[in-house]
């Protein structure tokens, strides 16, 4: 996992059945414009598919976009699956329609950062640049 790379490599996934991908696509464009490598896996990805893709693609971080209210359930399952596959070193970031009161809970579960709607571009870019320095 330590092969030399010049840019941050992210997996952006939309787990669950929700089809609202505007946010995911906007963030993908933002990060790509900033020179990061974004692998967007499209709609309706299962947790298994997401974890397998993350391991295969050797990504630095998994970003989940969730707008249907099931962020706690899906994040929990993803974290469990990563552990099961000995891949818990891959951090996860969650974005979407996340009520403020759920943010501490998600972080307690092991989510590295949460970007609810209206998060500024600067904040998102700053976060990835700081945390995943190359």
């Amino acid at each position: 996992m330590n092969r030399e790379r010049s840019s941050i490599r992210l997996l952006l996934a939309k787990p669950g059945l929700d089809g609202h991908d505007r946010g995911a696509k906007v963030v993908a464009s933002l990060l790509r414009d900033a020179g990061m490598e974004v692998i967007y896996t499209g709609l309706r990805q299962t947790i298994d598919q997401t974890v397998n893709a993350a391991i295969q693609e050797d990504v630095d971080v998994i970003c989940l976009s969730i707008l249907s209210g099931v962020h706690k359930e899906l994040s929990g399952k993803l974290i469990a699956k990563l552990r099961e596959k000995n891949a818990e070193s891959i951090p996860i970031v969650v974005g979407g329609v996340i009520p403020p009161k759920d943010i501490p809970e998600l972080k307690k579960m092991g989510v590295m950062e949460v970007f609810p709607v209206h998060t500024s571009f600067d904040e998102i870019l700053g976060f990835f640049k700081d945390r995943f320095k190359r």
Partner: peptide
């Protein structure tokens, strides 16, 4: 809910978190 919209029954394991959600 999304399972109904996408044609999955409630007892399908793929949809377990989404039954009755939206």
């Amino acid at each position: 809910d999304l399972p109904t919209q996408i044609g999955f029954d409630s007892d399908n394991p793929v949809v377990e978190d989404e039954v009755g959600k939206v």
